[in-house]
């Protein structure tokens, strides 16, 4: 049987959800028999193609996030919002209540200990969005795994349900927002 192709990425996230995924520990060995990784921090593949499952950590905070998210939607049959930030913007979205200009000046001009104050403007840098947004506001999302981060057991329950052809469901103990 062909292996299931999984792509993963972190947008405006902290990689905590990816770390939690790695907490599957020895279960990763069992998983490796069934799945292979496409674009993901653990493969160095730059663009995803023809994947079965895309796992997205983080919300969208800049233009590059939007492009990446759209690429995932186009190339993954099932797209999954992983973690609080992908689902509601999470802690990065707490900047939504401060005008972007103020955020940038605090970080790069007026902040304590800033040397050589200037707002980074290299054309290679993606432009920031005025607000951090959850990913379901940009593309259609098929499943949501809440948690900050979702525990390894959440990933395991979800993936084994999918791989064994069941409709994924999370029990009470597995649903938490913190």
């Amino acid at each position: 049987m062909a292996k299931i192709r999984i792509a993963t990425t972190s947008l405006a996230g902290c990689f905590g959800c990816h770390m939690s995924f790695l907490d599957l520990d020895e279960r990763l060995v069992a998983l490796a028999d069934l799945v292979e990784f496409d674009r993901s921090p653990i493969t160095d593949i730059e663009h995803c193609t023809n994947c079965d499952i895309g796992l997205i950590e983080g919300g969208v905070c800049n233009s590059e996030n939007v492009h990446t998210l759209r690429e995932f939607r186009k190339n993954c049959k099932i797209l999954v919002a992983v973690g609080a930030c992908a689902i509601n913007g999470g802690l990065p979205a707490m900047r939504n209540f401060i005008p972007l200009e103020e955020c940038l000046s605090e970080a790069y001009l007026d902040g304590i200990g800033v040397e050589n104050p200037q707002i980074p403007s290299d054309p290679e840098l993606p432009l920031l969005l005025d607000k951090v947004r959850p990913i379901h506001e940009v593309v259609k999302i098929d499943y949501f795994l809440p948690g900050c981060p979702p525990s390894a057991d959440v990933f395991w329950a979800f993936l084994t349900d999918l791989l064994e052809g069941r409709e994924p469901s999370l029990s009470y103990e597995l649903v938490h927002y913190d």
């Binding site: 689902i87 379901h136 506001e137 809440p146 469901s169 999370l170 009470y172």
Partner: peptide, 21 residues
């Protein structure tokens, strides 16, 4: 509020966020 959401197996917020100040 959170516990009611858990009880109802609410996994996402479905609607666009207001982010009201």
């Amino acid at each position: 509020l959170q516990a009611v959401a858990y009880y109802l197996n609410m996994l996402d917020d479905h609607f666009p966020h207001f982010y009201a100040h």
